[in-house]
Amino acid sequence: MQKVFVILRKEFREILQQRILLFGILLPPILFDVIPFIYLQKIGNGTRASSLSIPSLQGLSLHEYSQAVVGTAFSNLYILLSMIVPSTIAAYSIIGEKSNRTLEPLLATPVRRWQLLAGKMLSALLPAVLVTWMSGGLFITELAIFTDANVVAHVITEGWLILFFAGTPLLGLIAVSVMTAISSRVNDTRTAQQLSIWAIVPVAGIILGELSGQFALTAQVAIIADLILIPIAVLLTWGAAQLFQRENILTRWK
């Protein structure tokens, strides 16, 4: 594990030196916290309720319902955040290393493939999970402060908490694995990030389904979702590991 930490330290040092990357990591969570704050502040007693009918919000007053709709919409963005942030870091970490031609000297060291891959993946995953959880924590605090008493319990449900704490690391891992695969075919970080957006689409679709009242994010649904995510994450990580071989990187990666 020693070398994984050495790689992690190097990666974090590099991340901290890149203002654009830091901006890319911090901007989405900041926006996700600031926008609902503004909405929740503006929702007054006279606000019309959304025409959406969300099962989990039944029984709330019109005012509470309005707050809860905004809260639910944004609560789901934190699930997506766990995919956006690691994609950004992984793009810089792997493609940056490739385009700067620093990969070959690194591969020439006696580092094992899993150590290098773990270092690279964790350097993207750990900050992403940390940023997602911190940002989500701030959002819960905002809800507690700026909404009516009933709203928090309707937005921050058991299902959301399970998906937020157990699902986001898995989604982050999926995003990093997808980015590793993309890195083998693409030479610039922007293209890689654009391509990685497609990995978010299925998750965004599911979130939209919940928001449109197609299903409720109950604890049971969240556990099933996590159980589905585990094999997907394992499979994609295995695929990334297959691509991340010295031979492949030096002879087949573009």
Binding site: Q18, R101, T102, P105, A108
Partner: peptide, 15 residues
């Protein structure tokens, strides 16, 4: 056991 100097220096510019 070996040391290698690749065709390009391949150093981390930001470090």
């Amino acid at each position: 056991t070996i040391g290698i100097l690749t065709e390009t220096p391949g150093l981390y510019d930001r470090l």
